[in-house]
Amino acid sequence: MSLLEIKDLKVHFPIKSGVLVDRTVGHVYAVDGVSLDIEAGTTYGLVGESGCGKTTLGRAVLRLVPVTGGEVWINGVDLAHLPEEEMRRSRRQAQMVFQDPLGSLDPRQNIESLLMEGLEVHGVGAGRSERRRYVLDALDAVGLPERALNRYPHEFSGGQRQRIGIARALVLEPDLIICDEPVSALDVSIQAQVLNLLEELQRERGLTYLMIAHDLAVVRHVSDAVGVMYLGALVEEAGSDALYTDPRHPYTRALVSAVPVPDPVVEDARERILLQGDLPSPADPPTGCRFHTRCPWRQEERCDTERPELRPVGEGHRVACHYAEEIAAGEIAPRGVVGPG
């Protein structure tokens, strides 16, 4: 059963200009029609490079940014169209863990007060002692001792701070946790500690995760299904294993081929698909397929004019490319592939 269902979600930010009167002169199409389902108790990974809209999508689910269009269903309620007051109450079902734990924890609040805040806002627990028990539970779940309660965020290391961020999300017993780059600010030896913790919590509590990150290896490791975003849209969605063994979209192929693997034997044998140029501006996305300006397999006419729909190509595998089958069969030759050696 799906816990989260996103239908044609759009977030367009207006670009304002003018001295006396603000005129809207255009839009940044940060998220431009994304649909996806997340099964309860599973992890959905969202990858893409900076500016692809993955963070905005995560925030839009919780309405931390205004939603332009589309629907966000959690537990049978469409969050996108809830009145503000009800939305505030609904946020208890879905919590967020941010990238920078120091930036997202108020430096003047001690850990007890940070973790209590959510409980108080949502009126959870009868009285202080019961709330304190919830807080201690959450703290214990993330592996921090009780004495942490009287301390302040700056007294902790990066990994511990991220544990506090996770505890803050956990304490409200949400169904869904949206993790936005939860480990990218941490040293590699610490990353594994936090990733293992997230997996353990999922097993124990049946949590559902939306895992947003730029690191494909991290996302693949923790996710059941992975969606790849490019310029505000999903270009491919696949099971975690299929994404590496059988990527269908040219962008996914390039992404997979670009991630360095810590093994010289693998590195020497790999074929790298080098993309030309940079990401186009999301304020002025290319016509047709948004990837056509950088695509090594681009075909005349159709790719430039017709926007490909996300269509199924296998069990749990969707791709938005006109020529996915031809590319897989090797009927279209790519440009700009660097071979091994």
């Binding site: 590699v188 990353q191 594994a192 293992n196 290896a217 590496y244 693997v261 093994d263």
Partner: peptide
């Protein structure tokens, strides 16, 4: 270090050892 990094080419269920 090598045991604690998720590898893109590793099977998903291979555990990380921090």
């Amino acid at each position: 270090l090598l045991r604690s990094i998720p590898r893109l080419d590793a099977p998903r269920d291979e555990p990380l050892t921090p």
